[in-house]
Structures are given as C-alpha cells and as structure tokens.
Design a binder for these strands. Structure first.
Lengths: 141, 141
DNA sequence: ATATCTGTAACAAGTATAGTTACAGAGCCG
DNA sequence: CGGCTCTGTAACTATACTTGTTACAGATAT
C-alpha cells in the first residue's frame, strides 16, 4: 500500500459530494463507499478544504459539501490540492560536480520535470467534476 | 529515500554513455558521477539493456555503451524502460460496489490514467538524448 | 591462470502511504 | 445546560517501495 492513491480517492470523494448537492455528507458515509477508514477521508477532506474545494461543518448534523458547483472544479485543481509527488523524482543525492554531466544534468531534468508537470496539469484541466459525474452516469464525455 | 529517481538516473547514465561514443564505460565510473553505488547503476543498466537501449559486455575491459545513436533514443523510451509507476495510482482497495459512484469510478479513473500517461509519453517523446547532451553543453534546446 | 568487469541475490536502512485508535472541540437539540 | 454527533488531528502500526551495501558466480581479455 505504498502507491499514492490520494488523487483517485479525492475524485471519488468530490464526486459523491457533487451528487449530494447542498446536503452535508458525513465522512463515515464517504468512507463506506471508498472502502477505507473515515480518518483517511477526513485527512483528504482537510486538504480539499484548504484548497477551498469543499466546506466542512463540525458538530451534530455536520459534514462536508462542495464549495462550488461541479462544472467549476477541474481535475487539475483536485490534483494540485492533494499532495501528490511529481511525475518523476530528481536525484536523491546530488551528482558529482566534478563530472560535466553530473554538474548540469539536474538543471536539465528540473526543467523537464516542470514541463511534464505543466503538461499533466493542462490535460487534467480539460476535465471537471461534472464530466466525471456524466461518465459515471453513463453519458459519454 | 522512497521517491523513484530511476528515470533521472537513467537519463544521467545514458547521457554519459552517449558522450563516450563506442568506448565501454564501467559501472563504477558511472556510479561516481551519479554519486551512488555501482550495483544501483548495474540494476538500471539491466533494465536499459532489456529495452535494447544499451549493450553490456562482461569480463575484463567490459562495460556498457549505447546501442543506438543519441538522436534515436527518445526520453519516452527511457521512461518506459525503467520501472516507473503511473502518474497517479488507482484505489488501493476496491470501492464499494453497492454505491453507484464506487461501482463506476474505477473505470473512469482508469481511462483518465491511460490518457494522462499517453500525454506524458508524447511530451517526453518530443525530446531525445541528443537534445539533453546539447542542453548540458550549453546549447539551448 | 589471473585480473577485471558484469549480473544478480540477499539483506539492511530509510521513508511514504494507509489503517487504526483515541480524544479534544464544535455545534445542534431537547 | 447536558448529551449527542460530528470534524480535526495526533500518535502509533503495518506494509511496501526505493536505495545502499556486501558477496559471489560467471564471462572475458591478457
């Protein structure tokens, strides 16, 4: 269980919230659908709340609902809201600065990393929560 | 040290090989530039060899050299050669099949995952090893 | 034969995700 | 006001993955 599935869970969570409109949804209810512990859901909701994608209320009859309508929440925003890593990581330890390749490769890879991340963001930005709901309900995207 | 930096190391390795032409390069030599253990390099070279990107020779005066010229090795091929994961992972445990969202979200996310991976592949495919060498030598891409 | 290099197994160490328990604090209602 | 029901969060565990390291068999040139 080391592969980061936070984005997948976040989309799942937000899709459920979207289908509940203005009704508050409890973390236990979402956890049952995602098939995990409610605390795992609340941790993700914390990140989504910080990104202003959802609004949570404590107390009896509390819960969480979307902060905006589904068509205004892009998958890119969700991706950025949850702490996912980059597509690929740079060197763990700095390469040798005595080698011309080692000295410069990090900068090259760093630029490439940014470009790839931008490309992923743009692709994800083509879709929003409403599109996901439509796909789930059987309507082609 | 859990972030996967195999792609970064693979590009580093192949760049060094590219700059050595037809000369065999020893894993110890590459390891010194990457600043890691030679076995780590040999493990990666094994994957690159399986992908037919490099040719290795055992024995005295053995080592590794590129199997093709640098302009014919795209970064996409390198990415696919090393065992990197997907951009995002699907659910660790299957969602509840009793929930309409849980029942269908996996298929939606799986399609999305394929699309993103394809997008990353296409972006990486725009560059080859020769471009990396030119960047390292100070020539703009 | 000997020296040198790759290939690979085996194990240790470090780190990230996810699961779980526990509890403080917020808010509704009788 | 007191009790009930939620969220928010800390703390700990289990598991899995990457990387580092040692060790050694096998290949190859001299």
């Amino acid at each position: 269980m080391a592969a980061n599935s936070q984005f997948a869970m976040a989309v799942h969570i937000l899709t459920m919230l979207a289908r509940s409109g203005d009704t508050n949804v409890k973390s236990e209810c979402i956890a049952a659908s995602v098939n995990t512990n409610a605390v795992v859901i609340r941790r993700l909701l914390g990140q989504l709340s910080a990104a202003k994608l959802v609004i949570s209320q404590t107390g009896a009859f509390g819960g969480t609902r979307l902060a905006r309508c589904p068509s205004e929440i892009s998958l890119c925003e969700i991706y950025k809201a949850v702490s996912c890593g980059e597509v690929f990581a740079l060197h763990a330890k700095s390469p040798s600065q005595d080698c011309p390749v080692g000295k410069n490769i990090e900068a090259v890879l760093c630029n490439l990393q940014k470009e790839i991340d931008k490309s992923v963001g743009e692709k994800l930005g083509q879709y929003n929560l409403q599109n996901v709901i439509e796909q789930i309900e059987g309507v082609p995207i």
